[in-house]
């Protein structure tokens, strides 16, 4: 199968590879996929709690070249976005940017899921004082 230039570029020069401290309250971690399915993505975001802006994003991916490229691209897009803007990233945006063929669409779906999982993890870590106050009474 021929890969698009953008997939090859991300595969050969993956952006933002690495890990952030998953125990930090400002870091959200998403891990999606399964080894027996052939792909696992770990995507992390570090959010500024005052502004809600994603200051850093890192990934590690076990998967084919398109899965690596999808998650690498996702980290590029995440940086500088607010948490709510990040949730607007759709898998189809990734498909278009990387020109993924139909058999590789699941890679982009996985990347979208990883973004949602990372943001979800971050949100769970944030205190929600008002709601807690209500639930006491």
């Amino acid at each position: 199968m021929a890969y698009s230039d953008k997939v090859l570029d991300h595969y050969n020069h993956p952006r933002n590879v690495g890990s952030l401290d998953k125990s930090s309250p400002n870091v959200g971690t998403g891990m999606v996929g399964a080894p027996e399915c052939g792909d696992v993505m770990k995507l992390q975001v570090k959010v500024n709690p005052d502004t809600g802006v994603i200051e850093d994003a890192k990934f590690k991916t076990f998967g084919c070249g398109s899965a690596i490229a999808s998650s690498s691209l996702a980290t590029e897009w995440l940086k500088g976005k607010t948490v709510d803007q990040a949730l607007e990233i759709k898998n189809t945006d990734i498909v278009n940017e990387l020109s993924l063929p139909p058999v590789k669409i699941h890679c982009s779906v996985l990347a979208e899921d990883a973004i949602k999982a990372a943001i979800g993890d971050y949100k769970r870590k944030q205190p929600a004082p008002e709601r807690e106050a209500f639930s006491v009474s």
Partner: peptide, 22 residues
């Protein structure tokens, strides 16, 4: 690049992780 290699090196038993099969 592999999150699995990282986990294995940290001593995580990958067979005991509950993965989100897709």
């Amino acid at each position: 690049l592999s999150p699995l290699y990282e986990m294995a090196k940290e001593g995580v038993d990958l067979s005991k992780v509950s993965w989100t099969a897709h």
